[in-house]
Design a protein around this nucleic acid. Structure first.
Lengths: 228, 228
DNA sequence: TCAATGCTTCGGTTAGGATCGAAGTATGAA
DNA sequence: TTCATACTTCGATCCTAACCGAAGCATTGA
């Protein structure tokens, strides 16, 4: 009598307003923390945690632990396509809730991820460092080469001092706007701080965006070329 | 107050098991009475009536009064397409309502998807039409070629008549059991109707299965060969 | 070591809605 | 008219799950 896929489970997962708002917030492609998603859903952190666990169990979300944050993102682009098709249908039936402002391209280009550089420029920086032989990528881990230590020292990074801290020097951090890795760890932090100190870039107030000056951008791109 | 189309309403409508069962039953393409749908949903008539009113208000169902019966059917083929895509997703996540029975293999082989042929045979038919140059696949869309129009005319399909309807002629529909596309749209409907008219196949009562006669199956396979 | 942050788990409350019995309306047949 | 069928509406019950406060766990930085 009952045969075929169980659409009720999927529907129920999407059918709760708080969950639907969280999923909609994730449609931008970026991974968000549980706290951010709680805000998007208009609920407290505890409730959001329960919802996120259900969405993950249902295969709609994927979770990635990153330090003391937990980043949630749509499990894959099939989920995005599914949500998009439901959105299209809902719109065609007049089930609309209006959406405000534009996106933030600046955030995708360069932003702060805790204390290091993420976004397009963050990904480019790590790619360039690997291509130059300054950092070697082994499986999941990254390690600074001797050539890299010299190279970064010439920029003004005191690698020896960084090594004395307990925090790992190099760490890979998955970038969800780019879906590729960028450089975290104390070295990642030191590099971003270095850019700020040199006046190449500055933070936008109340935002994670990083704004490069025109001169700073030129120097940054020259320092981290793409060898394509 | 939030963003975009309201997917929660649609999700909630599909998310109730009784409603999902009724919608699945309507994927068979024919209109069913409230009593029949109550049986499909495993609920009493009163409860079914409340559910059907909600589904109609949500734009998923259309109602037609005929005598003292009230026939319900999917509002249009967009609904069928939406449900099929959710089914495909649910199947890919292993959300199967498994009541394993003899119907299951038959359902995977050939079934009705709203009003056209799906399953293994539905996928084969589209593949064969594309391989024969009758249909060309462009990006996500399908279009009938002139050669295809002649070819289908020889089978007995009046393509010109189909073109006069408002409904799209060719449409791709993702198949949940095969995870590949089959042919929807008015042409898909016309082909299935053609098979029924010729006596090649018939519907199984109270099921979405399509059963081919041995002669009909031979002719179908000859008409839509796989050139592998 | 301690404090701060980010998130999860636990426990108890509450609201929504799914459900069905009973009664009401509409259509058709006898 | 009378009965039967098909469905809807009303009213009451009951149960799930959404919700949040508080406490617990984990990671990080100092």
């Amino acid at each position: 009598m009952k045969e075929g896929p169980d659409i009720a489970q999927i529907g129920a997962l999407i059918g709760d307003p708080a969950r639907a708002n969280m999923l909609t917030a994730l449609m931008g492609g970026r991974a968000l923390t549980a706290t951010e998603l709680a805000g998007a859903g208009g609920i407290t952190l505890q409730t959001a945690s329960a919802h996120l666990a259900k969405l993950e169990a249902g295969g709609l979300l994927a979770q990635r632990k990153q330090g003391r944050h937990r980043y949630f993102a749509l499990a894959d682009d099939n989920v995005g396509k599914l949500l998009e098709s439901i959105m299209g249908f809902a719109a065609s039936r007049g089930h609309l809730r209006h959406r405000p402002g534009p996106k933030e391209p600046a955030l995708r280009k360069a932003r702060i991820c805790y204390d290091h550089l993420a976004g397009d420029y963050g990904v480019r920086m790590l790619d360039s460092l690997i291509a130059a032989g300054a950092i070697s990528a082994l499986d999941d881990g990254l390690s600074l080469t001797k050539a890299g230590e010299v190279h970064l020292g010439s920029i003004g990074i005191d690698v020896g001092g960084l090594r004395s801290t307990r925090r790992p020097l190099c760490r890979s951090c998955l970038d969800w706007s780019e879906r590729r890795a960028h450089l975290a760890g104390s070295l990642g932090k030191a590099l971003l701080t270095n850019f700020f100190d040199k006046g190449w870039a500055r933070r936008i107030e109340d935002s994670r965006s990083v704004l490069f000056t025109s001169d700073g951008e030129r120097r940054f791109l020259a320092l981290f070329p793409l060898d394509a």
